[in-house]
Design a protein around this nucleic acid. Sequence first.
DNA 1: AGAAATTTTGACCAGTTGGAAAAATGTTAG
DNA 2: CTAACATTTTTCCAACTGGTCAAAATTTCT
Lengths: 241, 241
Amino acid sequence: MATRKLNDGEAASTPVKRQAKAGVKAAGSKTPGRAKPLTRIQKEKQDIILEAALEVFSLHGFRGATIDQIAAQAGMSKPNLLYYFPKKEEIHRRLISELLDTWLAPLREFDETGDPFTEIRSYIRRKLEMARDMPRESRLFANEMLQGAPHVSEMIEVDLKQLVDEKAKVLLTWMDQGKISRADPYHLIFSIWATTQHYADFDVQVRAVLGPGRNGDGRFEDAARYLEHLFMHGLTLRPKT
Amino acid sequence: MATRKLNDGEAASTPVKRQAKAGVKAAGSKTPGRAKPLTRIQKEKQDIILEAALEVFSLHGFRGATIDQIAAQAGMSKPNLLYYFPKKEEIHRRLISELLDTWLAPLREFDETGDPFTEIRSYIRRKLEMARDMPRESRLFANEMLQGAPHVSEMIEVDLKQLVDEKAKVLLTWMDQGKISRADPYHLIFSIWATTQHYADFDVQVRAVLGPGRNGDGRFEDAARYLEHLFMHGLTLRPKT
DNA sequence: AGAAATTTTGACCAGTTGGAAAAATGTTAG
DNA sequence: CTAACATTTTTCCAACTGGTCAAAATTTCT
């Protein structure tokens, strides 16, 4: 909750056809002072829309998704949806910035004072659970990264970098203390991200390769076992060969 | 080169407005007998188009890419491009099916008779080189997987599965022979895919986190070093703790 | 209840996009 | 050279898409 949401600053260059007169001010307002209480209905509808949008965006990407699809998924008409979010981009922006918070939460919990192996193991487990339980969010994120993160560049260059720097330092400390084997902490983190998110983003491939047998979530348990094996061994100190 | 290209079987349901009278038969023809020699110019132009399409598709995804963009990138007019590939989908199909061949080549070379550590190490290295040298292909592939592999489902369920099954068996043999530590071979392969492709697909994120310092390909060398460390340790036999 | 505000709808529109038709321009074999 | 064929360009279009608008329906407030 500490990180900035970075969804103020409208593109100050848009032609400004006519300021939406009635519609709900969907996202960050220019005047942070009063923010219009946001009625119960508005909050509800916005949540419904965001849920629908998550479904559609994660399935087709930003450009692949149409407002019509999202509206249909949300069970409302297109103009009605536009009433709550005047711009398609706005829905996406909201989704992404809310997502980033949840997405990085596990890394934030990473505790310097804990036992390195326990900390890393539970970080891996949590990330894998997220891949299992929030595949749409994972794919939304992956889509954004694939396109070059046009909507979150600032956030990943500042907040994300800062967070990772911090946690990398923790890992380095542990290495210095001889608690875990020495290796590039950044790439360690990358490899945890990559391996865990793989099970959400490349789900079709994983299912296809494992065949019909190992499907019903059994693959996640196997993956958990395997990744634990992989990373724990990779972290264990050993006499030089 | 052994795998089937699976690009015959037009969607037999399309309305068939009027069979393209002149245009080049872009992909697999219904009658595999005579395949029209394909003049030098045709081959050249098709290659130019495919190269341009790779650029655009990998950058914007299938729906995000427009024929106009591809045509512009290829330095020709839209109708001219459509002369060579009557359907946008056709370009994409060709790209994907050609890609799959290259993409799986390193895994095919995996040699049962070689030294396990050497084989796996060089597999990782090759995959990482591909992420470095063919990021567009990697992203095209990732995009396809993210969308649920609508165009290659058959191929990944048959050819890919078969190949991985085969190589998993090799890994199992090595484990049985006590040459490498015992672990799920499928997830081992997945984790190699995930970690290596991560550097192409999530390039922005990697760059952002590493900051401006470690950019000019240095990150790939670091990654190679780290991944070798990770996987080699994960494979090394050790007395039970 | 009745006025005011909010929410929803139906009709509509302008720009984009995939693609078709046909004419125009090469290119090549006889 | 010229007929047949291959390639390219010009013009056009129908469907889709993001978005607008005024009016209607509904909810909220007094």
